[in-house]
Structure formats: structure tokens, C-alpha cells
Design a protein around this nucleic acid. Structure first.
Lengths: 189, 189
DNA sequence: ACAATCCTTTGACAATTATCAAAAACTAAA
DNA sequence: TTTAGTTTTTGATAATTGTCAAAGGATTGT
């Protein structure tokens, strides 16, 4: 029974045999980086997925010269440039640390190999993809027809720590608004 | 070698052995319904996923009394209330036919059984979930920081038939704007 | 502690998009 | 074909959000 935060999170999705667990564990790498470290540079292939033991990351890209925060992940969550990881093609999205972090990474190629060898791990991969789908769909719904104030309120109930830990200019683009608009939503309580 | 549009599409994601193919095929049901037929009523559990051989479907829900088109699917694509299907919990999203359609359905429980029995099919499920993730992410990006005109233009290049086949009021909410705004975007060419 | 920088807020104004109303265009049934 | 109903377009106006500029706060390094 491996004791590792990545594995323990994965177990909540599907039970794993000791064989699968140790095979998975043997491909994990523990990483420690400081604030500002770039996990995935822009226009490169995202070759690993990162589980956050402690710390905070953001995925972002530039559109028309503007810095757009696409995703935020904290402890217990995954950080990845999702479309690049799935397609193994370069993507404009970049991933960086907003706080010094302890991460567990596994490479795309190692995962592919594990998927081939262990049906259980293939299932884990499917369930993690399903989970990701739910998360993206939730954010999609928010943007679809919620006002700036509604989106801020949802964030305050679902991820209040982001507002404390992430610069507001990044929270603003995460929510699909300008920093000025976010500041005004906050003033409205 | 099964000849079936669902199976042929799935083969493009991953190769399937004859055994897996016939196991999958044996769980498929061919369905034919007229325009307006409701595949998934609102606030019910979406128990099947539907592959469209011919026809057109939309997923929609009501927010503040307004009808919002969440997703459109045509021949060669899948129709499903995605979060309900994944969680097997009720969801406000409803799925209906916009044209008379020929569909191939498979139930969630049959899929679960097949996933258990055939590693290859579990892989297929994982790859289909990955594909869905890419699609939702693309639409998320659009809404995040593209203007109404940009969103209309993207639709015209990526799915021009939707504009011809779907009532414009539904295309408008699909794109996250009012019918009046869509009409004005169209007038601007 | 202090400067230098960066982040956030505030204000004035502009652009985008929504709302409401009515006219025009289209569709379907008799 | 004509009519009744629905959808789409157009117009006037309002609400929301963005842009630009400047002031106020906070943070960091020396």
C-alpha cells in the first residue's frame, strides 16, 4: 500500500491493486520548485502531468498581447496544459508556479506504457479524463450566460482561497473580465 | 469486421479486435426518431450516449426562464447530456432532435460492463473522454475572450452547416449572445 | 527604512452587447 | 394561394463591461 498523495487521490477514483499501485508509483517523480518556475513553456509539448502536493500553479497564454489565465490549480489538484498533453502537440498555453510547490509528475510516455500494461490504470486514466471533462464543463457553463458579478460570487463560494492567493489581475482574466471590472465587483461586495 | 457507423468512428480513435468489436456491436441499438423527439428529458439521468448516423440534436437547458443551447451535434458526432452521463445523476440539460435522425445508442451500464471485460474498450472510453475534453476546452476558449463577431466567424469556418440547419435563435445562445446580436453580426458579414 | 516597482482601486468615457418594440421575412396549414 | 403564426431583422435606448489615465497601496530588495 503505497503512501503518496498522487496515489491516494487516484484511489478515490478507482481501487488499485498493489501491483498497479507500485507500477504507477515507480514512474512518479517528486519535484520541488520556487515561485515563478515554468513547468511548461509556451509553444512546447506538455510531456508530463503534475499533481500538486503543496503549492499553486496557473496555466496561461497570450491573446492579442494580453495575459490570460486559463486555469488555476492548488494542492490536491492537477496542473497540465491539457490540450497539449492529450494531443502531444505544442500549444500556446504555459504553466508556471505562483507559489513554491511540491509536485509529483508522471510523463505521458510512462502513462501510455502503464495503460498498455495495466487495465486498472487505463480505467484510472478514463476516470480522470471524465473528471477533467466535468471541471471544464462547469467553467464553460459559468462563462456561457453568467454575469461578471455571478462569476465572481461562484469563485468566492467554490475556491475562495484563489482570491487570497492569486494576484487579482490573474483572477480577473481567469473569470473572463478585466482587473478593473473585478475590482468593481469586489466593491459591490 | 463489423460495418456500423458508430464502430467505424470509434476505430479512428483506437484499433479494436474482432472480439471487442462484436461485443460492442451487440450492445448498440439503432433508433429512429422524428424532429422534436426528446432523447433526454430535463432533470433526469442520461442513461445512454447517442451516436448520430444522420440528423441533428441539441442539448439545452433553461436559465432564468431563457432557453440556452448548450451543444449541437450532427452526423458522425455524439449526443449526450455529458455531466449527467458521467455522474449518472439528474441534470437540467435536456437533449432533443432538431431533425429526424438515425441514432445508435449504448447504455451507460452496458458500457461499464464492456469496460470491465475488454481492456481495449476501456481504452476507447478513455480516448473518447479525451476527445470530449478537447471539444469542451475549445468552446471554453472561445467564450473566454473572443468577441461576439469572432465567435460567429469561428462557427462559420468550423461548423457552417449549423447556421443553415439550426434556428438562429438557438445558434445565438449556443454562441453566448442574444438573437438580435447574432443578427447584427451576420449583417456585418 | 526607503526607494522602486508592481498591483489594485477609482474616475471618466467609450465600446460592446442586451433589452424592448415593431416591422419584415419566412413557414406551414387550410 | 392566403392567412396565421413564428422567426429574423431593424431601430432606439439602456445596461454591462472595457479602456485609458491617474492615484493610492502593497511588496520587495538593498
Amino acid at each position: 500500500m503505497v503512501r503518496n498523495p498522487f496515489i491516494e487521490t487516484v484511489r478515490q477514483f478507482t481501487p488499485l491493486s498493489p501491483t498497479s499501485e507500485s507500477a504507477l508509483f515507480s514512474e512518479l517523480h517528486r519535484l520541488e520548485f520556487g515561485k515563478g518556475h515554468v513547468l511548461v513553456p509556451p509553444d512546447t509539448i506538455c510531456r508530463s502531468i503534475y499533481f500538486i502536493e503543496t503549492g499553486l500553479t496557473r496555466t496561461f497564454y497570450y491573446k492579442d498581447g494580453k495575459d490570460i489565465t486559463d486555469w488555476l490549480s492548488a494542492e490536491g489538484q492537477f496542473a497540465v496544459s491539457i490540450s497539449s498533453f492529450i494531443t502531444q502537440q505544442p500549444d500556446r498555453r504555459s504553466v508556471e508556479l505562483l507559489e513554491p510547490s511540491v509536485l509529483w509528475s508522471i510523463s505521458h510516455s510512462a502513462l501510455e506504457k502503464l495503460y498498455q500494461q495495466h487495465h486498472e490504470l487505463e480505467r484510472m486514466g478514463r476516470l480522470l479524463a471524465n473528471y477533467g471533462l466535468l471541471l471544464v464543463q462547469q467553467r464553460f457553463d459559468e462563462l456561457h450566460f453568467a454575469t461578471a458579478l455571478e462569476r465572481y460570487r461562484t469563485l468566492m463560494t467554490q475556491n475562495p482561497t484563489f482570491v487570497q492567493r492569486v494576484p487579482l489581475s490573474m483572477v480577473a482574466s481567469y473569470l473572463g473580465m478585466t482587473p478593473e471590472t473585478l475590482s468593481r465587483m469586489r466593491a459591490q461586495i
